[in-house]
Design a protein around this nucleic acid. Structure first.
Lengths: 103, 103
DNA sequence: TTTGGTAGTCATAAAAAACTGACTTATTGC
DNA sequence: GCAATAAGTCAGTTTTTTATGACTACCAAA
């Protein structure tokens, strides 16, 4: 069963995992918005220009799996879901701000 | 001529450009090696496990275009080429180290 | 029980990134 | 001129990422 191409993720570079967490077309902006406050799916869809449900869904899931965001069900007026930064996510803010300051 | 899909790069997130400079399968490791000293194509090909000429070539070109690396022709024994960090590239080192420390 | 809001999933298609092996260019040493 | 070393390029293919539109699930109010 030795497949010719293994996605064995031979990551020899420690920074790579972190970079990957924020890589792709939508994750950086989603992360930035998350630093401003809780996110809702429908708001993102409206506010993130050019985005689409599927891509946001994938990006949110990946940010969640990377433990940068966490999903919270809000049992209120219209029941909905919020995405918040985890402690892990918050620890990335200073680095993110440094990146922004260089841009 | 309104093409349905424009790659208009609507980058509303300032950090995104920086992240993009180091995105992809090979650029993080190449950058990390560049912080240790000058790079040569053939050495990279040997040292970066699983890489290949084409991908390294593309990655180096992108790092060059992003002004993180610069190409220098070395007129010595066997004439060859070196890739060095630019000042711009060096300014990223602290951020990169922070990323590594979190990993 | 139908309607409306919220938050998605699914199958499929298109675009971008990465891989492979053959081929190219430039310089040096014999 | 001929081979060797270094640094690639090129065409074609595969893999991964992103996009589209239709459809689903949950709850609440009328």
């Amino acid at each position: 069963m030795t497949t010719k191409k293994m996605s064995a993720e031979n990551e020899t570079c420690p920074a790579q995992a972190l970079l990957k967490m924020l890589s792709g077309k939508w994750k950086p902006e989603i992360f930035r918005l998350a630093t401003k406050g809780p996110l809702r799916f429908s708001s993102l869809l409206r506010e993130v220009a050019g985005s689409n449900k599927q891509s946001l869904s994938v990006a949110l899931k990946e940010l969640e799996e990377a433990k940068l965001l966490q999903k919270v069900i809000i049992r209120e007026k219209p029941l909905h879901i919020e995405y918040n930064l985890t402690e892990n996510g918050k620890s990335l803010i200073p680095i993110f701000e440094q990146l922004e300051s260089l841009g």
